[in-house]
Amino acid sequence: MTSFFVYLFKKLLYALSVIVGATFLVFLIFNVVVGDPALILLGKYATPKAMALLAHELGLDRPWYIQYGAVLKSAFTFDFGYSWTTKQHILKIFQEGGLVSLTVTLPAFLIGNGLVISVALWMTQYRGTIWDRLLVVCCIVMTSISVLVYILIGQLFFACKLRMFPIMGYEKGFLACVPYIILPTIILVLLHFCYSYRFYRTIMLDEVYQDYVRTARAKGLQEEVVLFKHVFKNVMVPIITTVVQDLPSLLFGSVVIENFFGIPGLGNVVMDAMSRCDFPTIKAVTIIAAVLSVFCNIVGDLLYALVDPRIKL
Rank of each mutant, 00 (worst) to 15 (best):
F109Y: 11
I93M: 15
L53W: 09
L54Y: 10
S118E: 00
Y82M: 14
L156A: 12
L148V: 12
L60M: 14
Q67C: 05
P48S: 08
L106N: 07
L156N: 14
L175K: 12
L306W: 14
I40K: 10
I186W: 03
V147K: 00
N31A: 08
S254K: 08
W122P: 05
I167D: 02
F174D: 12
T86H: 11
G43H: 10
T47Q: 12
Y68W: 15
E57G: 05
Q155N: 04
A15I: 07
N234P: 11
L303W: 07
V285Y: 10
A108F: 05
L42N: 09
T185K: 04
L148E: 05
F165V: 03
H192C: 03
V299N: 02
E224P: 01
C177G: 05
I40P: 04
T77N: 12
M274Y: 14
M123Q: 13
K283N: 08
N259Y: 14
T185M: 04
G154E: 02
I40N: 03
D308R: 09
Q95F: 13
N268M: 14
K11F: 00
E258M: 08
V231K: 01
L183Q: 06
I90H: 11
C160T: 14
Y65R: 04
I153D: 02
R217E: 13
A55P: 06
L110N: 06
S101K: 01
A22F: 06
I145L: 15
P179M: 06
K219Y: 13
L156C: 11
L247R: 04
I111V: 13
K49A: 12
L8S: 10
I140S: 09
A52E: 15
T124L: 03
P238W: 01
V189W: 02
L175C: 01
A46Q: 00
R133W: 03
V285F: 15
D246K: 10
F199E: 05
R133S: 10
P280V: 13
L250M: 12
